[in-house]
Design a protein around this nucleic acid. Sequence first.
DNA 1: GTGAAAGCGCTAACAT
DNA 2: ATGTTAGCGCTTTCAC
Lengths: 370, 370
Amino acid sequence: MFKEYISCSANVCINYSDPESLRDRTGEALGVAVTIKDVARIADVSPSTVSRVIAGHPRISVATQQKVRKAMRELGYHPNEIARSLVTRTTNTLGLVIPYAAENAFANPFFPEVLRGIGTVAQSAGFLMLLGAGSTEKEGRNLSLQMLRRRRVDGVILLGVRAGDQLIEDLLEEEHSFVVIGRVPDDRVAWVNNDNVAAARQVVEHLIHLGHRRIALVNGPDDFVVCQDRLEGYRQALAAHGMGFDPALVADGRFTESGGAEAAETLLKIPGGERPTAIFAIDDLMALGVVRAARAKNLRIPQDLAVAGFNDDPIAAHLEPALTTVRIPIFQMGAAAAGMLIGLVTRELDRPAQLILPAELVIRQSCGGR
Amino acid sequence: MFKEYISCSANVCINYSDPESLRDRTGEALGVAVTIKDVARIADVSPSTVSRVIAGHPRISVATQQKVRKAMRELGYHPNEIARSLVTRTTNTLGLVIPYAAENAFANPFFPEVLRGIGTVAQSAGFLMLLGAGSTEKEGRNLSLQMLRRRRVDGVILLGVRAGDQLIEDLLEEEHSFVVIGRVPDDRVAWVNNDNVAAARQVVEHLIHLGHRRIALVNGPDDFVVCQDRLEGYRQALAAHGMGFDPALVADGRFTESGGAEAAETLLKIPGGERPTAIFAIDDLMALGVVRAARAKNLRIPQDLAVAGFNDDPIAAHLEPALTTVRIPIFQMGAAAAGMLIGLVTRELDRPAQLILPAELVIRQSCGGR
DNA sequence: GTGAAAGCGCTAACAT
DNA sequence: ATGTTAGCGCTTTCAC
């Protein structure tokens, strides 16, 4: 017994027979947190034993188990996760950076929805999410790397990667755990994606079956993999139906509503029979801009111009006419990415995997035909 | 020099004249992180000196400064924030829990927008956000508390508090730093809110000026402070114009679209002259439901029924007729909450403050009169 | 089944 | 201006 007295730290070396007064001194008067040592002393065991009951170690007697739990309760003990992390070298935390496209991205629910998917799985596995907010895209990329290097997270999930992203090279080189939401043409990296090529192709074929022959594409910045893929689907549909690809029919809408409107204005200036009768925007927000531009020119939708979008933003269903679009399993992609990442960091998954989730064409009124 | 050789840890006790090989061994072959000690050895200084240059300590010679930085670069050193946090007892992290109403809340952009506000300020102050996702509301509340108790965050931001919330009592009792987004009738707690009473009153007065005398309210669950406040604004407007309060004109729409529709159905069943000519839903999502229910009864908006919402969801502007609603400064509320919390944890702010931000009535077509 | 001791990577007095 | 020392609160061998 005396040994423990001696080893106790000064601030809690007081009357043991009165746990209440001790709690007051440690928890409040001194503003010092109660530690594993305090619990050990009250329960009259060693710190390692306390540690074992926290960890749910099997070989521990029921009697001490209870003694220790009682002491924890009395003292209001809560383990310090920071100290835990330092020795175990794990944080049970996934890193994530709000995409810099956020100012737009928040208007569309991609990020919140993917976050909900990630969060749901993380929660069930006992992980939390560490969120960074870069004020530039570059800063955001850097944040992901720093979270890892500075040991604040066990792994990160990447969003909105561009082709040939340097960040991915660095992550790979430094052997960090990560999974990207999107497609990366490299099977050393784990990713989960929806099938953008097939889905875009479906949209365009739908338009072709409706009789359209001049179909324009409002794309996003062409170094985003997602844009390249949707463009590819567009080309494939055209090719499959013997229709030529006309670069004049592709415009960049910058993933914003106003960008979409501007792209549509350009497209709709094309004279006479060359003018598109249908516009496919690879994001609903841009499709909204297209609709606005068409209205400004007194074009009726779908009679004078068919419009299709992508992502099935909540707004799409409430538009008049309701927007034909593609519903992608955003929540599921987030959930799958989180599951994969947790597998990777816990070593339950031994190497990066790739996953492609199906998307679904949602036919409403903006293209007619129904 | 020999001293350092002796004190070095086994895994890096190799040929110093070749930093490259050391980097390989430490960073890759052995998979062991390079620490402050390694840097110290290479730079031929003590670990505390290295620590000082990391912290930007003033009294440090330019020469050693450079020596140390060079060593860091060569070794690819990155400080371990976990170790840092353990000793400094701060994490530079704000905690936050995705509100359990999330499944609905994500449909409306409140949470993402507030997150963006918080993130922007956090980023500029060098803070990250730790995000939890409770699978029930209770679990969510518990998460906030655990993050604090287990020392993973310096403070938390609370969303969607109910009247007399126990969590707030606990937080207060344990002297944690926190700020709530919403109103709490207790000036020991820091909060930021928009003026819900005044804004709701404005909406109802707008309706009254338009000639409506039977104005219904689609409210949310009545233990949310925000619902109580908007109800109060509704009552004040009525009272100010000598109109009686009729409980039959208040229905609970549960903050969902379908809940709003059901509430409207009930309200619209009221016979003859008693039936409301206007319905004010305290959230746009519920207003959407009201519109849907009205359409189902072949009621024209605004001619047969005026509808107003709250929050200015992106959908509101795209609806036909566009929804009259209240725009609240969500981003600013998040930013202010984060600023306040950071002030509190850094002791720059010495006691909790309260902040009320103005909201703005956005008159569109759904109530007519314009 | 439990304890003693070492150490995770860093900071912060206290020396000098 | 820099080194020495002693922890931060926890886990984890290695003994017994």
